[in-house]
């Protein structure tokens, strides 16, 4: 084994605790991604809702006159 080269399989093995360590890190990554994506979706929903309300009110104004 080349001493200066990083041993990836040993790293991924995590001394036998791979399942626990990588599940923890994976869930953390998932939590970060969900927390970034969900407010972006929410923003689109809010904007669409206000746009619909604006249209509805404009239509009502038209019907009055």
């Amino acid at each position: 084994m080349n001493g200066s080269e990083f041993n990836w399989s040993e790293f991924l093995h995590m001394g036998g605790y791979a399942v626990f360590v990588w599940t923890s890190y994976g869930l953390t990554l998932l939590m970060v991604v969900v927390n970034i994506v969900s407010p972006i979706i929410e923003r689109k929903r809010v904007i669409a809702r206000v746009k619909r309300a604006i249209k509805r009110e404009a239509l009502r104004e038209q019907n009055k006159s």
Binding site: M14, G15, G16, Y17, F20, V21
Partner: peptide
């Protein structure tokens, strides 16, 4: 590597900040 817990202790880096 932790001398008592081996590599499993690395969970600390996500667990404790959370």
């Amino acid at each position: 590597t932790d001398y008592q817990q081996g590599e499993s202790y690395r969970i600390i880096f996500v667990h404790v900040p959370a």
